[in-house]
Design a protein around this nucleic acid. Structure first.
Lengths: 205, 205, 205, 205
DNA sequence: AATGAATGAGGCTTCATTCAT
DNA sequence: CATGAATGAAGCCTCATTCAT
């Protein structure tokens, strides 16, 4: 029984892993169920044992995305300083080889959210949760500069920059992905520098 | 002949007007040619007289988007101050009744850019052109604060915020669209305030 | 415009003609849309211009069946005597070469009626209309024997026999279809003889 | 071994019991093997241990139907009079709570017979056996009126009415199933009255 | 120039059947 | 004996595209 549940979860994971590859490559609605099954190395029919239909796969992907983001938020909370937290959050979508979050997929997710209520709710929830989490981190941090901005407003700026960077990432501007990521991080850091002192920077400096 | 060209242009415009409505509502790939023809009040076949195929319609949309953004950039350049310029650029996607730029469409456009080279090139071009334009505006402006940031870096931050805001806009968070727009503008202004002095603010203050 | 309507009707008729052949041969649910299109000599997609889906084809078939039966009832009403009327009604489903009503199709129609409300209503309506029609014919006819049966009861018996004969017809019992039909007619006539005098038979005989 | 055969028979019965429920509800070809397994409370695979394939289930159902009808014919033969015999036969398909014969299933069976030789033979056999049985009963009965009809012809009429009634039964005309059954029985009795004297009715009356 | 009927490939989904456990 | 995961063929339906009128 436990074995079956395990198997069920593994299959779902296997399918979602295949799906995210396809979705990132071709988008939700240009990806056929056959594409997913081929990528997963299973038959089409098997997908339907684990997901009611294609929409359910999309919703499950959105759901998994939410969980991944929440995990990353958890990691960010445990970082030793605000800037490190922000870096963890920011870097989520540009991890070395296999980014935990694939920009093309996320942009598609937002596009889908504008038409698919189920997805919209999930994405909204992600946004609110992370926004609140970061607002708290900022509020508890001694590093805020005197900018006349509330922690909430700072968080809003930070996420606007993160999301904008993510959105532009799909354009693949820049020679290599490494350079692109470095460039993106520099932009974000420029904002952080406007908002926060370095952790080890003395307050009076 | 001139008349026919006129007609041709009008037809193309009519079709693209219909297409953007459909694309924003349903996305590129869930919009059928029939949807567009119905929205335009013409027959399906007629679309093929003015566009080679559906992809050509999408490309033409991207092209038109590029022109619209360039127009807005032109307006921004003629504004009397940097902040006004930025506001013109920012407000492009949340004009009162009929926004010149519809967020759901733009997010779809970016999603499409990640798969469609022709679209990717157009969008990249838009980004570079506007980025350069704004960098110039900043460089020529006396309003920059001493932030250790180059005009380019400031422009990067500004566009990251603009795009991030656009992307989140599709989530329709906020009770009314007016309130949503007001909130979005506040976020952007918070960044501008970090970067620039008010136009009439004396330099020595 | 009239031409298009004509065409529309012709196409529908063409499709329904093909459908009834397939339905009689294989049954509603073993007939594929491809079967119908092949029989009609058109493409699958074209069927969907004239019918919303397969169920709509089935419903339309039921509807057409209803109209055909009503036509036959009309002919029966204009016959010169009760027995001739009954013969017209009875013979409807065993016309010489191309029976107006194909027994296998009708049995399927009844089977479908037990699961498909739309079809059930149509079939019920056919039954009631014809039953009422024959009841009237009997009531107005001088040929009824003194059997203590009301016209309605006679009609009920007559239709029970007609339908039972139709149902058994699908078993193809009997060497040739001609002999089968002759045999079926004999059974029906045996009932009629129990109920009615011959038209030219004097009442006192 | 005996135990296994027993088990085998029980399993087959269990499966056929489930199948007839599904078949009556949805028809042969809209019933999936999964439907049957779910109704029987067993796994899909198990059905294939007892039946070669779906067609074999259908054939077995037809076979069982034949046996049930033969049983009913046996009961009818042991009745004390012709009319009672006929009533037993007629009532078979409208037994109080769980009719021994479900009309929707039988109509489907006839529909199937028109395409499936194996089923057709079984149904033909049922028809002939019962027809012969009733012909004999009539021949041996003193209750026949002087109608100039042979026992065979009477049997034909009786079965035509029985089958016709069965076929119409699927339309569920009439408020309650009790009333419907009462009405159906009245129709059949009207025929019987035309053909036979009451059992205790003196011959000279 | 304009229509919309027609095509047919391709996508989503179901389901009979098999087979490893 | 029993399960149910797995397969893949086949069915329904949509839609980009063409073409006769």
């Amino acid at each position: 029984m436990a074995h079956q549940l395990e198997n069920g979860l593994e299959r779902r994971t296997q399918i979602l892993d295949a799906a995210v590859v396809c979705f990132a490559k071709r988008g939700f609605h240009q990806t056929s169920m056959h594409d997913i099954s081929a990528e997963a190395g299973i038959s089409v029919g098997l997908i339907y044992r684990y997901f009611q239909n294609k929409d359910a796969v999309i919703s499950a992907m959105a759901d998994r995305h939410k969980k991944q983001i929440n995990e990353i938020l958890g990691q960010a909370r445990q970082a030793s300083g605000l800037l490190e937290s922000l870096e963890i959050l920011f870097t989520a979508h540009c991890g070395e080889n296999e980014p935990q979050v694939v920009s093309a997929f996320v942009v598609d997710l937002f596009a889908e959210a504008s038409r698919n209520m189920r997805v919209a709710e999930l994405v909204r929830d992600v946004c609110e949760t992370t926004m609140n989490g970061v607002t708290d981190l900022i509020a508890q941090s001694p590093e805020a500069k005197a900018t006349n901005l509330t922690p909430r407003e700072m968080a809003e700026l930070i996420f606007a920059v993160n999301d904008g960077t993510l959105m532009r990432d799909v354009l693949k501007i820049g020679p290599t992905s490494e350079e692109r990521r470095a460039q993106q991080l520099k932009v974000a850091r420029n904002l952080w520098r406007l908002l926060f002192k370095k952790q080890n920077e003395p307050a009076y400096a």
